[in-house]
């Protein structure tokens, strides 16, 4: 029990962010029309590409002679970038079709 309490106390900032973001995430897309479901999914898909930051940190910390870490890190950076760039561009293309057709 004490370990759990200590753990919560040690990570309280993170836990607050998690709890608040869950509510924010649910709140902001609460009333989305079904027409926008797919672009919204695609946009959210691009946003979780933020995982690339972790990949960059992994890559930037790897020792120059640790080839496993370098290669896996490089792969992670490439995949993360694909997620970010591809995600935003596809979303933009989808939304482009709505151009000038707003209610």
């Amino acid at each position: 029990m004490e370990t759990i309490l200590n753990w919560i106390a040690a990570h309280q900032q993170m836990i607050y962010i998690v709890v608040l973001m869950i509510f924010v995430g649910i709140e902001i897309i609460g009333k989305v029309p079904s027409v926008l479901h797919t672009p919204l999914m695609s946009g959210a898909n691009a946003i979780h590409g933020v995982v690339i930051i972790g990949a960059i940190i992994v890559m930037g910390k790897a020792e120059a002679d640790n080839y496993l870490a370098l290669i896996l890190g490089l792969l992670a950076v490439i995949l993360g970038t694909l997620n970010v760039v591809g995600g935003f561009v596809v979303t933009d293309r989808m939304l482009e079709m709505f151009k000038g057709k707003k209610k």
Binding site: I17, I22, F23, G25, H37, M41, V50, G54
Partner: peptide
């Protein structure tokens, strides 16, 4: 923090979606 915010945001919004 930005990874945490972005990730949880998409996790919650994605589940609702």
């Amino acid at each position: 923090k930005v990874m945490l915010t972005g990730g949880i945001l998409v996790g919650a919004a994605g589940t609702l979606l």
